[in-house]
Simulated assay, not measured.
Amino acid sequence: MKNLKEQSCKDIFKNAYEKRYTWNTDFKGYKGKCTYLFEDNSYEGEFLLGEDFKPEIKNIDEENIKKSIASQLFEVCIHRVKREFNSVHSENNFNLLKSSENGIEMNVSGRNEGDKYRVKDDCINMVYRKIHGTIIEIFVEEFFDTGVGFLSKKYTSQQINPKTLESNSQKIEYKDEFINIGKKDYWILNSRSIKYLNQNQEEEIQKFVFEDLSLLK
């Protein structure tokens, strides 16, 4: 039988997990116009994101820009997939690390040994996960309540070396805006700003804008 702390942490995490915003299972994809802004440069094109989550960027010739836009679309949509809690975390246990004004922090034992999460106000505001041999650490500063689930609106992301546990990338700041399209509460990324320091320790901002959005049938 699980001890009380382990059981309650799992319940707390499950509740927050199930309150994340996800798309309906009948999602067919969407399309629209895309704009990439960096310094004084602007690139405008069109995109189509099918139900296979493979973005297609049109009317932009620069391959690096197309890849950058496509990666943002893919990264956002992959987090909108609805996956039942038990299918993802049935082999994990959640153990209390500490509780503070920032939330309830817990680590994972079992299948995803070493992962950590923090939950506050029914939202997961810290993620510390090993993905493809690298630890990704995310802190969410602000959430957007869609009415049918929460979306991360303002957050930071950084890579951690799993051997030294030291950062091996700079901290990147994200700010997202969303818009509701369709008749079934489909909240779609409207814009994303990415802020970071370049090699000269100067602040740079990339911005992605997605407009004229419509669902595929």
Results as ranks from 00 to 15, higher is better:
S99H: 05
L49T: 05
L48E: 15
R83D: 14
K58V: 12
N95R: 14
N92Q: 09
R20L: 01
S68M: 06
K28D: 11
E63P: 14
K33T: 06
G29H: 04
N95Q: 13
I12Q: 03
R20Y: 02
I69D: 07
Y17I: 05
F74T: 14
L97G: 08
E91I: 01
N102W: 12
S71I: 04
R80W: 01
F38L: 08
S87V: 10
V81M: 04
P55R: 01
N102H: 14
F13E: 00
N15Y: 13
R20S: 05
R20K: 07
E105W: 04
S42D: 10
Y17V: 06
W23I: 06
L37I: 13
D40C: 03
E62W: 02
L96F: 02
N95M: 13
I78E: 15
S100F: 06
N41S: 15
E84D: 15
K33N: 10
N102E: 15
H79D: 15
K31S: 15
E91W: 02
G32F: 03
F94K: 02
S71Y: 09
I12A: 03
T35V: 11
L37N: 14
S109I: 08
K54G: 06
I65G: 10
K28G: 12
D26I: 00
V88Y: 05
S99N: 10
S68R: 01
K31I: 11
F47L: 11
F74R: 14
S42H: 05
S42L: 02
